[in-house]
Write a protein that binds this DNA or RNA. Structure first.
Lengths: 129, 129
DNA sequence: CAGCATCCGAAACGATACTG
DNA sequence: CAGTATCGTTTCGGATGCTG
């Protein structure tokens, strides 16, 4: 997630945008954020289950990135066994409108013109409310 | 941008979201879209100049991806020298709210608590109106 | 002008094993 | 439970050269 080598020729505009976009970059980042929107806090293991398909390594890595970028807060409970909770920071919460719009778009393009009558029951959708 | 190998264990929800997110994935995709929002159509060379720092190869590649995913339309004029114009499809235009929200977030987090009085003049910002 | 082909280094990513 | 460390693979992305 570090891209600070070439690409020096940047115009004034869009640079800040690029910076921000880098925060969300990565296969799992946005997905993780979505789940963090669906609950006030989530433990590591809960996230692991929520973001199905992610490897443990990736989950940690992306969480650390998000933490470093001030989007997610990590709270460690000094217990045995360990307990770590993740939650959105203020900056992270500020992403809600964007993620909501993204989710809306995602859902809208899943219906390929033929409008279904029942939206496929038995499918807990949610996140970002 | 093809990720269809493992990760079979997907829950019903969030799959469609993942699909949609894949469309936007890639270092330049969103940036390209931003520029396509700022003008009705853009020629290849115009995009190349607009998205500063991108290599020709990447621009083509990402444009093809976006085209394949039905977000961008490619119009070829059978002339010599060649002329190709790119524009958003209906599906692409539908991304406007999401990108707007994203841009808003990007800008909001650039001001680190200390509110400036003049927003740095001589800096043409724009895209997504 | 718009683009394709190829080569190559750098990352992102995944699986596995080990730890306090 | 929540990590760290390591290794191997896959993908990404840039540079260069060529084409209609």
């Amino acid at each position: 997630m570090k891209r600070q080598k070439q690409t020096i020729t940047q115009t004034c505009s869009t640079v800040e945008l690029e910076e921000a976009l880098k925060v969300l970059e990565g296969r799992w980042k946005i997905l993780i954020l979505f789940h963090l929107f669906s609950a006030p806090v989530l433990r590591f293991s809960e996230l692991r289950r929520a973001v199905s398909g992610i490897s443990q390594k990736m989950l940690i890595q992306q969480l650390r990135d998000l933490e470093k970028d001030g989007v997610v807060h990590r709270k460690v409970y000094p217990e045995v066994p360990p307990k770590v909770e993740y939650m959105l920071t203020k900056d992270g919460v500020a992403l809600r409108p964007a993620l909501k719009a993204l989710k809306f778009w995602a859902e809208s393009r899943k219906i390929p013109a033929s409008v279904k009558k029942k939206p496929a029951l038995a499918c807990k959708r949610g996140s970002v409310r």
